[in-house]
Design a protein around this nucleic acid. Sequence first.
DNA 1: AGGTACGAAATCGTATACGATCACTATCGT
DNA 2: ACGATAGTGATCGTATACGATTTCGTACCT
Lengths: 227, 227
Amino acid sequence: MTETVTEPSAAAAAGSKSEQAYRAVKARIVEGIYSPGYRLVLGSIAKDLGVSVVPVREAIRRLEAEGLVTFERNVGATVAGIDPTEYLYTMQTLSIVEGAATALSAPLVDSVAIARARAVNEDMRECLDHFDPVRFTQLNQDFHSILFEHCPNPHILDLVHRGWNRLASLRSSTFRFVPGRARNSVDEHEALLKLIESGADADDIEKAARLHRSATLDAYLAQAKTI
Amino acid sequence: MTETVTEPSAAAAAGSKSEQAYRAVKARIVEGIYSPGYRLVLGSIAKDLGVSVVPVREAIRRLEAEGLVTFERNVGATVAGIDPTEYLYTMQTLSIVEGAATALSAPLVDSVAIARARAVNEDMRECLDHFDPVRFTQLNQDFHSILFEHCPNPHILDLVHRGWNRLASLRSSTFRFVPGRARNSVDEHEALLKLIESGADADDIEKAARLHRSATLDAYLAQAKTI
DNA sequence: AGGTACGAAATCGTATACGATCACTATCGT
DNA sequence: ACGATAGTGATCGTATACGATTTCGTACCT
């Protein structure tokens, strides 16, 4: 439950150098080793990974299609930026697809999964006291991943993962961890679990899940206004 | 209003051969020249386009990331399949993102746009009498494109376009044109326009737009059951 | 006859090489 | 001194070439 977010649609076998390059660069972006704005020079990456430029180039174009890097003709690739507008788009989209994923998954979440999710959520509460934002973020993903385990629509799940990856590259940026928001988040998680347990209407669950994400966005916007 | 669906996120300049190959192959898939299951041989496509295999390979990997082709290591690429499950996933996802796009765009649709959309919808009604499914499908996209013209979230619009592209490759397959469904569709369009004109609640608009897409899926499922 | 092993052809995967394009600097002219 | 321009280095873009892998047909064995 602490593994990195993986795209279920990605080719399974990891053998090819192209695949290797794709995974390596993606990991470096998601883990924050390559920060937004970082210049991805084909030759350097190729030498770094011990492969030639062709597979690296291919990998980077694929990452471009996922929105993780931007590409400019004859200039090169950079890790995708973090301007507030882009953040807003991503969060809004996530609120929609996460809402849908939660609602679709809800009927398939059994009591065991609920218990596991609740345990994760309690760990998150713990993190609040010890102020451990990195772990908090990871547990947050774990929490939702549990709810999505039996999501009946892999396409939607894929969109959720793409959004998460995009946000991951913003880690340790301005957007991280709005003060006071985190505690609300934990409470909303608990409320969401209760809703699912009670077999609430799909619409209600969807709305709750959406608001959960929107609230984080709103908190950021409110904070941004005061700066 | 009759142009092909274009991805706003795609790199603007079309100059490079890689870009050329990408557009060419994508167009052939969307236009149905390459049907699902069609084997995409790198060398052949390269010779066909007058470029080498490297840019073609890159283009195909990008199309893979968009879900238009499937790729297998050391075997090759084929135009993405059409099994009913995949169709269900795509339609369900479309219902969600189209619903969101419609609701977000609604406040920004002015009376001129409404009038244009209504005109397109009347053309669609026309198509029903002359039985012109190809034009009907195109006009249907035009109709929704008008509503999405000022969509405030380009990411969501991008997801809509991806869904459309995916469905386009299914044209002239089993999934096309469930009898009797098309007329309902036109009526739903008119109802949707009235909702938007009246400045209805975003939730109501979203729900209506969702159902509009879901109904097509349901019609297909009902038909599939009888076969 | 059916199945298996071998071999050839097709195709993929990537390294290398070279031409094209861009950014940056230094020089020249005003 | 300031701006324009040419030169230089870095990087991208793609053609070509060759090794690796798969697929398919054929001959052989049981």
